[in-house]
Design a protein around this nucleic acid. Structure first.
Lengths: 323, 323
DNA sequence: TTGAAAGCGCTAACAA
DNA sequence: TTGTTAGCGCTTTCAA
């Protein structure tokens, strides 16, 4: 920058102002400086720039893993949004490890101005942890935590899915998820009544959010003799595993069992049969989370906010009423 | 840091040395400083640290998109490797846009010390561009470009796939890919002979690396009346589209047509039928690319290097010989 | 083995 | 409208 200033015959301050497009610089001066910058191929040093501002220009995006259509889409959206704001996104696959999630929360590395964090392992017990930098949470259900939260409400999405299957005349709709995801759908402890008990039998817990777990869970459900004619899978991976299991058990989709996933379109359109889904608006999530994070970084101190992401039901072959 | 120095009764230099584990510091002093650091919860400011070193600690990883199992896996691997080296990875989905690829090559943003770049749109014409920072290329075939290249050789992988199908007695193996990917498999222009001509009919060009394009290409191949009993799809997305198309055309897999993809395991195991694949060692790619990039950043100036990534053939249902 | 002090490249008061 | 100058938090000579 000094070189530029000297070559253009101005002070570094003027160069700085031109580069940042601030201050009152005479047009002729600006042009001269611009030309010199061009000529010398000058590029501002981001580190130096940040030394003053106390900020690094880096946002952390922490997700359990990238090998999930939903998360990949989310990551792409966040990156795009952040980039248009001139910020760099450091992706951090946590693998669903609570330790890693805590590290992000505390901003152990210290390299980020703030983080967008999809909490999976950590629940409300994370409340004890003190965030080392502003944090916005991404989740599938609201948590009682002192952070802004952008929620693609799994319970509400599941309800829509169930409602769709019911409208197709399916009475015995099983719900497949992990324990955690399932909890909002379980009848309250001690609830009486045969209907409730029967429903409970249709809640299938997979031990992970993977295709293999989805396969295993549905396989044993089918083996168990509890009849079902509808299946809602909380996650694409589970849904694909489920489709596979149903096929191996010679249960036709959608004739015998209609299947719908809570997840992501792109993944689903080319399975066989193509999978109906309930999809959250990923772009909207990214924008909201990003906007809130920037506000917090800028010093906003209001109470934790909460945003429900809109979603859509997309019908494909797996729920197309036969006939 | 000044605070720590004062509190510990030493100079900032000593603190700096302790933090970085360099220099000759007496054990007792080191301990005292460590304790003070702990006590004050001091964290070094990365921006300031970089001011001296002229480096930003950021590596760019540019991939066409994240919504591909292979690329997601690659990204995860690179991030992990880079992180263990204390560096942050800025992910840059280029969407296969040549403009974006050029920007990365030139390091327009100036925020990265170097880039790992999966070139898709830009070919050898990129040779004219001057890299703004060290670059390592990731690709499916070697390019005549003055950059280090880590290549998961699509041609070699395809040959292995074809060999497998042949060993199952399949004589008419179609190859599905984009024009670009297909080019190494086309008979040389003007080659004579009926055999060659027939082979040419079994090269199917999809107009994009998507499931939809794979579907369309295989659909019209099947419609075209050219018989085939084996199919190699250059990419998971194409393979899934192909499976779908074959099903719709009532061609049984693997009985009528054996199918194998060049791609990524995780995606493939739960399709139906599960897809056999030829898989490059993603972790190996990441490590090699990262290592070379760091060497270049450190000033290594040798001639462009070239590394062939090892790969494995994984058999699943789609190529299991019937019987 | 340690300290003092000079920058790294930039921004921002304060002056002119 | 522009220049001077003092830092931002750290690393690193040069001395002690």
């Amino acid at each position: 920058m000094r070189d530029v200033a000297e070559a253009a015959g101005v002070s570094t301050k003027t160069v700085s102002e031109v580069v940042n497009g601030i201050g009152q610089v005479r047009e002729s001066t600006r042009r001269r400086v611009m030309a010199t910058i061009e000529e010398l191929g000058y590029q501002p040093n981001p580190a130096a720039r940040r030394l003053n501002s106390e900020s690094t220009g880096v946002l952390t995006l922490a997700l359990p893993r990238l090998a999930s259509g939903l998360h990949a889409a989310l990551a792409a959206a966040v990156i795009e949004v952040a980039e248009s704001g001139g910020r760099v996104v450091a992706l951090e696959p946590t693998g669903g490890d609570p330790e890693r999630e805590l590290e992000i929360l505390r901003n152990d590395s210290g390299v980020a101005d703030g983080a967008i964090l999809a909490l999976v392992a950590l629940g409300e017990q994370a409340g004890g942890a003190v965030a080392g930098a502003p944090v916005v949470l991404l989740g599938t259900r609201p948590l009682r935590l002192p952070f802004d939260q952008v929620v693609a409400d799994s319970a509400a999405m599941t309800e829509s899915a169930v409602a769709l299957l019911r409208s197709h005349g399916r009475e015995r709709v099983a719900i497949l998820g992990t324990e955690e995801l399932l909890s909002p759908h379980l009848p309250p402890a001690g609830a009486a009544g045969a209907a409730e008990a029967a429903k409970a039998g249709l809640r299938v817990a997979a031990n992970a959010l993977t295709r293999a777990a989805g396969y295993a869970a549905v396989d044993s459900l089918a083996a168990g003799g509890v009849p079902f004619d509808g299946l809602v899978a909380l996650g694409d991976a589970l849904a694909f595993g489920a489709l596979h299991a149903l096929r191996d058990r010679s249960l036709a989709v959608p004739a015998d069992v209609e299947v719908i996933g809570i997840g992501r379109a792109a993944e689903s359109a080319y399975s066989w049969p193509s999978l109906s889904t309930v999809e959250a608006d990923v772009r909207d999530m990214a924008e909201r989370a990003h906007a809130w994070l920037l506000e917090r970084i800028a010093g906003e101190t209001g109470p934790p906010r909460h945003y429900d992401v809109p979603f859509t039901v997309v019908e494909r072959e797996s729920t197309r009423p036969t006939g």
